[in-house]
Design a protein around this nucleic acid. Sequence first.
DNA 1: TCTGGGGTCCTAGGACCC
DNA 2: TCTGGGGTCCTAGGACCC
Length: 399
Amino acid sequence: MERVIFHIDVNSAFLSWTAVKMLSEGHQDIRLIPSVVSGDPSDRRSIITAASIPAKKLGIKTAQPVSMALRKYPNLLIVSGDWEWYGKCSRGFIEICRKYSPVLQQFSIDECFLDMTFRLYGKEPVEVAAALKDEIHSSLGFTVNVGVGSNKLLAKMASDFEKPDKVHTLWSSEVERKMWPLGVRDLLWVGKKTEQRLMDYGIRTIGQLAKTDINYLERIFGERSALQLHLSSNGIDSSEVETEVPEAKSYSAERTFSKDLTDPKDVDRALFKVACIVAHRIRKDSFKASCVSIFVKRTDFTTSQKQSTLTQPTDITALILNEARRLLPEIWDGETPLRQVGLGVSRLTHDTAEQMSLFEDPRLEYYRSWDKEYDRKKLDKEDPRTLAYESLSKHSADH
DNA sequence: TCTGGGGTCCTAGGACCC
DNA sequence: TCTGGGGTCCTAGGACCC
């Protein structure tokens, strides 16, 4: 029996959600004018996080630099994001979707899949999808697209058809007519690089890809990727709607500076900030990490990364920072200007047993109390107090 | 025009062990 | 003394997603 899967996708999520909030405060509806959500517009390096449909019609796209968008349209309305509010909107929209089927997989902050196979009770899938779409609009004030299909891949492809506020179907029987004429780039998991390689071999549309001999694809992409391309271009996807929320596998934070850094003191301070952010987040989720990695991006956009495994998992900022400091010289000569500095942790465990040792470093107690205070005071993540930085630096430098 | 931030998964090579 | 093959862990890098 054929399955019925819905994919629900909020239209220009961050922009719509900001619009709803501004409307309630008496502002005009920014969805109807050229507008964008972005980081600090005075920073030359800020990029566009979300754009309204009128803005998109002017050629303004997500991930473009704000400066570029302003050159295209100087009257562009720029608003900043509000992540707490976005979290509320996301939870509200997921809650409504869950009423239609408990077999729900949240795919990102603004997308989810529903397995509707046993939830239609004789009703037409398209009518149920329209009811869901309209309920979200009337109760929360923003629009969504609903893709309806025979599997997750097709549902997701369908939700990407004409926007906003639309229901589209993409059943297996419609693949040839609705999906095959599209360019390969429209296929899920085909990004820029794969598109270029396919182009090199004269494969431009999803239909051409579907009809390409899989053995030929294997020679270009390897066994695994070839199979993936072959199946998805033919509209085949047997994956389930996963209701379990997977545990995080890694945490990371990175900062791009408005001016490239060259002073080792500035770089160290940046490392400190990202270490505080990452360590705070793993403590909040009661994880400890065994692997620390750092990465840098240079002015020419080349990047380097270095990671190493700790002898014991930890959630202590100072120990993570120390490892990061040890690794840094291996990827940075102390002079090359750096555009970005990042820090990540992985190999996470929930192991709570403290590894007590007779020889436990007495400084650990100080580090833990420092972290406790950081967590308690919710210190401004972007601007940890100088004093805190100095005191932690002084201690951990002795290591 | 000049490119953010946060994730996941895959591959490939080297080290090490049996 | 010189030898095979398989498994696992670790690290670096790349591609993709939102």
